[in-house]
């Protein structure tokens, strides 16, 4: 199922002020894959995604996407190139309605009819959002907000979707639903997914491959299945 490499990080470093958050990350994602990045708090997982998107500027190294160097491309140019992120904490626009939030996902698109159709598609995936479409985003529950955040990202018709901690603070049953939908999106729409998770077990089960991050470095990279079997990983991240 995996095609050509679509997203590649070459030795990327990033700083917050003087603190170095990433110390040379290299990873690659092939078209159609689900790849997860696991690691403890503060390992640099979210920073990796923010650096890919250009919110945090890479101080060294390069980010390549679909054959282009996007290291210095401004964040707001990326969605129309098909690279889209669901950030940590969902970042719903709290005072926009659910429908407006979804519309924001398609902000750079001009074709109204296709946007309508995509919105219908999102409502198919997440029927709850249809019920709440005129409610303000900030009034939704955590699970609904996560659905809305994913739905909003889908509205941009992404080729690659970066998902940051979709399970954060959600009840296990909701987490299961969300992961099911993530896999459906990958299979039905052919969206490549790069997933960041603390819940390593869940993430690896849903992925083809995985990277393990520790204090800003990749310490291990392997097939998801092998990582799940690896005794070190089991001990450090799977709570055994």
């Amino acid at each position: 199922m995996a095609g050509d490499t679509i997203l590649e990080l070459k030795n990327v470093a990033a700083h917050y002020g003087r603190i170095q958050a990433l110390k040379g990350i290299s990873l690659s994602v092939r078209e159609g894959e689900v790849v997860s990045i696991i690691g403890a708090n503060g390992a640099g997982k979210s920073t990796t995604l923010m650096t890919i998107c250009g919110i945090v500027r890479a101080s060294e190294g390069a980010v390549h996407y679909a054959g282009q160097d996007i290291t210095r491309v401004n964040a707001d140019k990326l969605p129309r190139m098909g690279l889209c992120q669901v950030p940590e904490g969902r970042r719903i626009f709290p005072r926009l309605s659910v429908a407006e939030n979804l519309d924001m996902g398609a902000f750079f698109r001009r074709r109204k009819r296709r946007i309508r159709a995509d919105m219908e598609m999102v409502y198919e995936y997440f029927p709850r959002l249809r019920e709440r479409r005129s409610q303000a985003g900030g009034t939704l529950s955590g699970g609904e907000q996560q659905m809305l955040a994913i739905g909003r990202a889908l509205m941009s018709r992404p080729k690659v979707l970066l998902l940051d901690e979709p399970s954060l603070g959600l009840a296990p049953i909701i987490v299961k639903q969300i992961f099911d939908i993530v896999q459906t999106i990958n299979q039905e729409q052919g969206v490549t997914i790069l997933l960041v998770e603390q819940n390593a077990n869940l993430a690896l089960q849903a992925s083809n491959r995985g990277y393990v991050l520790e204090t800003g470095k990749v310490v291990m990279a392997d097939d998801a299945a092998s990582l799940l079997d690896n005794p070190d990983i089991r001990k450090a991240y799977l709570g055994e």
Partner: peptide, 24 residues
């Protein structure tokens, strides 16, 4: 309008607005 939506979105969350393609 679309511009107005971009303004409201930027007011609420600049990072997220950039992530959906708004030049803040």
């Amino acid at each position: 309008t679309r511009v107005g939506r971009a303004m409201r979105a930027t007011a609420q969350d600049k990072v997220m607005s950039a992530l959906v393609g708004i030049n803040s």
